[in-house]
Write a protein that binds this DNA or RNA. Structure first.
Lengths: 334, 334
DNA sequence: CTGAAAGCGCTTACAG
DNA sequence: CTGAAAGCGCTTACAG
């Protein structure tokens, strides 16, 4: 009905040209203070808000960043999204968000869809993506920031996933464990999970402790996955005395199942998780885990992309520090 | 560097006019099949993807829906976002997402920011928003869908929050409880929390059971809030035998604290929550709660908005059913 | 410091 | 069924 006011309405009311209003909005220092004031008045008077698509089309900047996450069901990604969005909003940018639930085809479709929308940058999780993703990104010359894992050539903001496995292994070796198991999400299409396992396994190997394939179980992320994973490990001839879980939803599920089975934690079983979910500090006993600063990763991703956009210079890749948080499961094996 | 191909490049390669390519993309049935095929070829050959902002500007449709949620820290909102985004993506729409962490000024700024981006519709949680929000929405003639709570005039997709409190009260009364407490998030700027309390309190009143103001405590959402809330309630002269928590993060926190204090649940204390977080089924004993179909709400919100956009007809408001899930805390008071 | 004008890349009546 | 042309609402060299 009442169509919203346009730039030229503001210009008319302020008695200046549209060009000047436009400058007052995007490059205020180019406009005399008193002119700016008249314009500001008119803008408030009319409740003017610039049209995003016109702006984007004319300037080549949409002021939108796209992000494709695996899921929001894990609080860890939700936190990263919040860090990303909050930082972007502070700089006048908005976040176009989608999730693919660990389905690479869905991810590919989403990349295509987001590139169809005008975005100034794209955040992806992991370095493990279908080939067409890389091709489209190159062809459309979009600024792509890989997060969570590092990438040899693409700018990335990573956690050292190998180190995560290493920290878990070192901790459990230090406690005297020699029989261990791993419960992980699916390795396929998940470079983070693979790197964590490698770090865990190779650190054990260096200590002369081998981790047989049978001691590694894959489960869907979720409490039930942790529960089912533990039950699988308990079938082994040599029951593990310690379990490393690929994330904290699995580790807490594993803990719940251990308790349901009447196992004493940590006396019968030590559990190490990853992510430092708030829940790991609430359960009894607490779960030892590796803290990933995901909110910070989101913030850094935002500022890195914004600087890339502004400077035109591709940023350096970085790796954020992770930290072992010891809680509860600190006993030696019986 | 290599600027992406444009509509006219496709047209040239296919040997047709830009107008025809445009039609083949947005209104295929207006274009002859063989022409369409030539165009399709050219599109794939060039890897053409329409420019979102140009499309939006020319057509008046951005194919973007904005959503402003309180937070993603609560899985309940994360679920709703996923339902929303997935359904939108299936229809070629994308989601512009922001969160305000229960800060009404932040929310207002975000509404302004999203209206500045071209969006075809806006999803808000609750009916309780700063006045300028309503004014801007009206002035910019944007399709606003209120969710989670109902609104007298604006199209809304609600849960019956009053009924949630009522279900909790009926359940606890049925078990024989007469001394009850409430742990809620802050009531200010949260119509859902107020309605749940009202439903709880008034249902008790009808049964001749009054809930003194002192038995109602406000806490920040989070496990710690649930813990602190229980400790507050335990200070009362008349200790409550049952607690209704405004959501499941509070209810699980309350359960953890009760157990840490050596209270037997449910013998010493019954707990009813709200949301049906997966965690409530994992803890021992399980937490009785009220299931809100939030993923479904997200899906419905998406399809409702899309239909509104397509038909031009404002949709009917609706209320999604909620359901009591009884778990664990089913004992009568000692 | 400000304005007139061209242009961003599409869509969509209007003709034919 | 297809094309030529105008227009969506901004931004930004280019003049002055």
């Amino acid at each position: 009905m009442n169509s919203r006011p346009r730039l030229h309405d503001v210009a008319a009311l302020a008695g200046v040209s549209p060009a000047t209003v436009s400058r007052a909005l995007s490059n205020p220092q180019l406009v005399r203070a008193d002119t700016r004031e008249k314009i500001q008045h008119a803008i408030e008077r009319l409740g003017y808000l610039p049209d995003g698509s016109a702006r984007a089309l004319a300037s080549g900047r949409a002021r939108i960043i796209g992000a494709i996450m695996p899921t929001l069901d894990n609080a860890i990604f939700a936190r990263a999204v919040q860090g990303l969005q909050t930082t972007l909003a502070n700089e006048g940018y908005q976040l176009l968000l989608a999730t693919h639930e660990y389905n690479p085809n869905a991810e590919l479709e989403l990349v295509r869809a987001l590139l169809g929308q005008a975005i100034d940058g794209l955040v992806l999780v992991g370095a493990d993506h279908p080939q067409p993703v890389w091709e489209m990104v190159r062809a459309h010359d979009v600024r792509l920031l890989v997060t969570w894992a590092s990438h040899p050539t693409q700018p990335s903001l990573a956690f050292d996933n190998y180190r995560i496995g290493q920290l878990a292994a070192e901790h459990l070796l230090r406690l005297g464990h020699r029989q261990m198991g791993v419960i992980s999400g699916f390795f396929r299409h998940n470079d983070r999970a693979r790197a964590r396992l490698a770090g865990f396994r190779e650190t054990l190997a260096v200590a002369g402790c081998t981790l047989p394939d049978g001691n590694i179980v894959e489960q869907p992320f979720g409490f039930e996955g942790g529960r089912a994973g533990l039950n699988q490990l308990l079938q082994l001839n040599q029951r593990p005395t310690a379990v490393f879980c690929g994330n904290d939803v699995l580790s807490v599920g594993c803990l719940f199942e251990a308790q349901a089975l009447g196992l004493e934690v940590p006396a019968d079983l030590s559990i190490v998780g990853c992510d430092n979910l708030p829940l790991t500090a609430q359960v009894t006993p607490g779960v030892t885990t590796v803290l990933l600063p995901t909110y910070e990763l989101g913030q850094r991703a935002a500022s890195t992309l914004l600087q890339w956009i502004r400077s035109g210079q591709a940023p350096q890749s970085e790796c954020l520090p992770v930290e072992l948080i010891v809680r509860g499961t600190t006993a030696a094996p019986r």
